[in-house]
Lab assay of single mutants.
Amino acid sequence: QRITLKDYAMRFGQTKTAKDLGVYQSAINKAIHAGRKIFLTINADGSVYAEEVKDGEVKPFPS
């Protein structure tokens, strides 16, 4: 399943989102408010992988 960072954070909370991605909650808040195009893939085992689309390139998040 693929979902935006904002939607994932709204569904699970910023604290869990940060923990799942290995970053601080403040980084999640800042990324959402900056309007960054970050998409999360939720794997069947429950693990989460995030990618950011920037300038036409897709890069892992966090980099």
Rank of each mutant, 00 (worst) to 15 (best):
L21I: 08
V48P: 02
D45Y: 05
H33P: 02
I28K: 00
T4H: 09
A34K: 10
R2G: 07
N43A: 11
T4K: 08
L21F: 02
G46Y: 05
F61C: 05
Q1N: 13
P62W: 05
I38P: 00
K16S: 04
I38E: 00
A27E: 15
K16R: 08
Y49A: 08
D55H: 11
T17N: 01
T4A: 12
N29Y: 14
G13T: 03
K6W: 10
I38H: 00
L21H: 00
G22Q: 07
R11A: 11
T4I: 04
S26M: 09
D45H: 05
G35M: 08
V23S: 05
D7C: 08
L21C: 04
D7P: 01
E57P: 03
T4N: 07
F39Q: 03
A27H: 11
Q14V: 15
K19S: 11
K37T: 13
F12M: 06
S47T: 14
R36W: 07
G13I: 01
I32H: 01
G46I: 02
E51Y: 09
F61V: 02
P62M: 05
A44M: 11
P60D: 05
K19T: 09
K6V: 12
I42N: 03
E51H: 07
S26A: 11
A9L: 13
F39Y: 13
F12E: 06
G46F: 06
M10H: 13
S26R: 08
T17Q: 01
D20H: 07
I38F: 01
R36C: 07
A18L: 03
N43C: 10
T17K: 00
T17A: 11
P60S: 08
G35H: 10
Y49L: 10
D20G: 03
K59P: 04
D7E: 14
K19Q: 13
G35Y: 05
Y49H: 10
A18M: 03
L40K: 00
I32P: 00
Q1E: 14
Y24D: 15
A27Q: 14
N29C: 10
Q14S: 14
I32K: 01
T17M: 03
A31I: 07
T17D: 01
A34R: 09
T17C: 07
K6L: 12
E57W: 10
I28Y: 01
K59I: 15
T15A: 15
V53G: 04
A31T: 04
G22H: 08
A50C: 04
Y24Q: 15
V23D: 02
D45G: 05
R11N: 07
I28V: 10
F61P: 03
Y24C: 15
I28A: 01
A27L: 14
F39G: 01
L5E: 00
K37L: 14
V53Q: 09
K37E: 14
K6N: 09
N29R: 15
Y24V: 14
V53P: 02
A34Y: 10
S26W: 15
L5Y: 01
Y24A: 15
K30L: 12
Q1F: 13
L21Q: 00
T17Y: 01
Y24T: 15
I32R: 01
A34Q: 13
I3D: 03
A18G: 04
K30W: 09
P60F: 06
Y8R: 00
D55C: 09
A9D: 02
A31Y: 10
D7I: 05
Y49I: 12
H33R: 14
T4V: 04
V58G: 05
I42W: 07
E52G: 02
L21M: 04
N29G: 13
A34H: 10
T41P: 00
F12V: 07
K59N: 09
K6M: 10
L5C: 02
V23F: 04
H33M: 14
F12S: 03
V58N: 08
D20C: 06
F12Y: 13
F61E: 02
Q25L: 10
G46V: 02
K6G: 09
A9G: 03
A18E: 03
V53R: 06
Q1I: 14
R2I: 10
D7T: 06
Q1H: 12
V23H: 03
Q1C: 11
E51K: 05
M10D: 15
E57A: 10
A50Y: 02
P62N: 05
S63E: 13
V48L: 09
I32E: 02
F39C: 07
I3E: 06
E57H: 13
S63M: 12
V58P: 06
D55K: 09
L40Y: 00
E51F: 09
G13L: 03
Y49F: 13
S47F: 08
A50N: 01
E57C: 11
T41D: 05
E51S: 07
S63Q: 12
S47Y: 07
V58F: 09
I28M: 04
A34S: 14
A50I: 03
V23A: 06
G13F: 01
A44Y: 11
R11I: 14
L40N: 00
N43G: 10
I28R: 00
G22K: 09
G46Q: 05
F39T: 07
A34P: 02
M10G: 09
S47C: 06
D55E: 11
K30M: 12
S47I: 08
I38V: 08
I38R: 00
E51N: 07
G56D: 10
L5S: 00
V58K: 09
I3G: 02
V48F: 04
P60H: 06
K16F: 02
D7S: 06
T15S: 14
G13W: 01
A9T: 11
S26F: 10
K30I: 10
K6A: 14
I38Y: 02
G13K: 01
L5N: 00
F12H: 12
G56T: 07
K30C: 11
F39R: 03
T41A: 06
I3L: 13
M10W: 08
D45C: 05
E51L: 08
A9K: 05
A44K: 11
L5K: 00
G56H: 09
T17G: 01
D55Y: 08
L5V: 02
Y8D: 00
R2Q: 11
Y8C: 02
K16I: 05
I3C: 08
D20Y: 04
Q1G: 13
A50F: 02
T41G: 05
A18S: 07
E52M: 03
F12I: 03
E52R: 01
V53K: 06
A31H: 04
T17S: 04
V48G: 01
Y8H: 03
A18F: 02
I3F: 15
Y49R: 12
I42R: 05
V48Y: 04
P60W: 05
F39M: 07
G22M: 06
M10P: 01
I42A: 04
D20M: 11
N43L: 13
I38K: 00
G35K: 13
P62G: 09
E57K: 14
K37A: 14
K54W: 12
K54R: 13
E52T: 03
P62V: 05
G13D: 02
A27W: 11
H33E: 14
A44H: 11
A18V: 03
S26E: 12
N29T: 14
H33K: 08
S63N: 15
G46M: 06
Q14C: 12
K59W: 14
L40T: 03
I28S: 01
M10I: 13
G13R: 01
L40S: 00
Y8K: 00
D55F: 09
A44T: 10
L21Y: 00
K6Y: 12
G56V: 04
V48M: 08
K54Y: 13
K59T: 13
A34V: 09
K19C: 08
A9R: 06
Q14E: 14
S63T: 11
S26K: 09
E51P: 00
E51G: 04
G35A: 08
D55Q: 09
A9Q: 08
P60I: 07
F61G: 02
G56S: 08
S47A: 08
I3Y: 15
I32Q: 03
D45T: 05
N29M: 12
E52W: 04
Q25T: 14
E52A: 02
D45M: 05
G13S: 03
D20I: 10
K37G: 08
T41Y: 12
E51R: 06
N29Q: 14
G46L: 07
P62A: 05
K59R: 13
G46E: 05
K6D: 07
A18K: 02
R2Y: 09
Y24H: 15
R11G: 04
V48Q: 02
A27V: 15
I28T: 01
F39E: 04
S47V: 07
L5W: 01
K37H: 15
D55N: 13
K6S: 10
A44V: 12
Y8M: 01
E52L: 03
V48E: 00
A34G: 09
N29H: 14
A27T: 15
G46H: 06
V23N: 02
V23Q: 03
T15Q: 14
I42H: 04
I38A: 00
F61W: 15
K19N: 12
Q14D: 10
V23E: 02
T4G: 08
G56F: 07
V58C: 07
E52Q: 04
T17E: 01
E52C: 04
F12W: 11
A50E: 00
A44Q: 11
K59E: 09
